[in-house]
Nucleic acid binder design. Structure first.
Lengths: 242, 242
DNA sequence: CAGTGGTCTAGACCACTAG
DNA sequence: TAGTGGTCTAGACCACTGT
């Protein structure tokens, strides 16, 4: 173990405790590169490295030309059993919030086909959503319904409103009765992070969900990508007797 | 958007496609700093920056004095409804695998007290586990049982075996019937990453779980920290009628 | 020992943002 | 325009790993 902390570690440590103990609150600006250089008598890259450590820990975000700031750690709860799982109003952001939505029919991607029990190449009805807060995308999701079911339930591109597809499934006797979710966590690739406008080092969460009706038929599957810093995922489930 | 990719971006992009399309398989060694410097005619820090991009994306891990290698992306499934939730044998690692375990009695931390419906300062029986694969810690968990219940169920430090506490609760008529889990994702702090010997940029997952018996009494709570790159979390749950 | 990555410097220029 | 962070260089020394 390091008996003597390196210069950049010392600087990073001092800044970190400032954030964790609350002296530097969310939104507060950190000491910049230039002042760190003077205050600690280090070179530019060393001061930058200290700030990079904090960014890599997800504690700060950098606004180019402006400065380095403490991230807001508030999260919105996503309760998987509820519908919608995510509350409509995103409380983590003070800025513009909204959802974009498009729908179409496509051939099922391989993992979606598997989840829905379809053969490869079969058609599905798809709805893609993108939720944003300010300039950042906080959620991207794609919902897939087997074409046969969609026709049976009179689901078309136009009927995809909030909870709308589910209402149609319900009317058609295919109300979702139980669900399965598989969660994976990873760091975004750079192009991906730029696309979602994720700032700083933030993990993303991918959720593959499959809904089944009371007969065990897979009626819809969805793939969701979340900004991992903005959500807390919650589950309630029964435990087996044995 | 960048019309002209920067030198470090160009290098990072070329390496990334090599990894993603499989030319560089898991475990393969990447071109090192020194050769990147020559091959692309860039300075040391520029070559390093390119490699850092991949590390920050969780694609590679660095072994000092040895080289940069492609990470193994395999994951173990953690099925929340099963007991144990994580399969005993961790298939992601070829090296040494095991679990360390210690138990004691402590006053309940604030969030655990809240989960268990205890007043602050009340005693709980605690079991701490650390699962490791090679030198890395893949899971750290702490299980808490209210002292009153532990006494009632004849749970002592010695009785905490795998599934053992649960068996005692069962015998005492407090078999867990349902559970609640709250998942959060974040980047580890540096000391934390060093403690768990997490290599590269890997998000960690924290799970706060509370188990309830059939009367709705909270019988145990646990806090788990997972290496986010090694697990896929799976849930099965019923959906409400409405 | 040679080869790897890790840290650091001193200086330069650029890109972005705000007043 | 002044101040911020982003990139890059050329060179140095160190720490760690394996043979």
């Amino acid at each position: 173990m390091p008996s003597k902390p390196l210069p950049y570690e010392r600087i990073a440590n001092e800044l970190r405790v400032g954030i964790i103990d609350g002296r530097l609150a969310a939104g507060a600006q950190l000491t910049g590169e230039n002042e760190l250089m003077q205050r600690y008598s280090v070179a530019r890259e060393t001061a930058r490295k200290a700030l990079r450590v904090l960014r890599d820990e997800g504690l700060t975000l950098t606004r180019r030309g402006v400065g380095v700031f403490v991230r807001d750690a508030r999260r919105v709860s996503r309760h998987a059993s509820r519908n919608p799982a995510i509350a409509a109003v995103d409380e983590t952001s003070a800025g513009m919030v909204g959802v974009e939505e498009v729908a179409d029919n496509v051939t099922a991607p391989e993992h979606i086909a598997r989840a829905l029990g379809l053969r490869e190449g079969e058609l599905v009805c798809r709805r893609v959503q993108r939720q944003y807060a300010g300039v950042s995308t906080t959620r991207r999701s794609a919902l897939y319904i087997p074409m046969g079911l969609a026709v049976e339930a009179s689901i078309t591109e136009l009927d995809f409103g909030p909870g709308g597809a589910e209402a149609r499934l319900r009317e058609a006797g295919h109300a979702p009765a139980r669900a399965n979710e598989v969660i994976r966590v990873r760091m975004p690739f750079r192009p991906e992070a730029e696309d979602m406008r994720i700032e700083g080092a933030v993990p993303i969460v991918t959720i593959l969900r499959t809904d089944y009706d009371r007969n065990g038929l897979a009626v819809q599957a969805s793939e969701t990508v979340l900004d991992g810093s903005r959500y807390a995922l919650e589950y309630d489930f029964p435990l087996p007797e044995a």
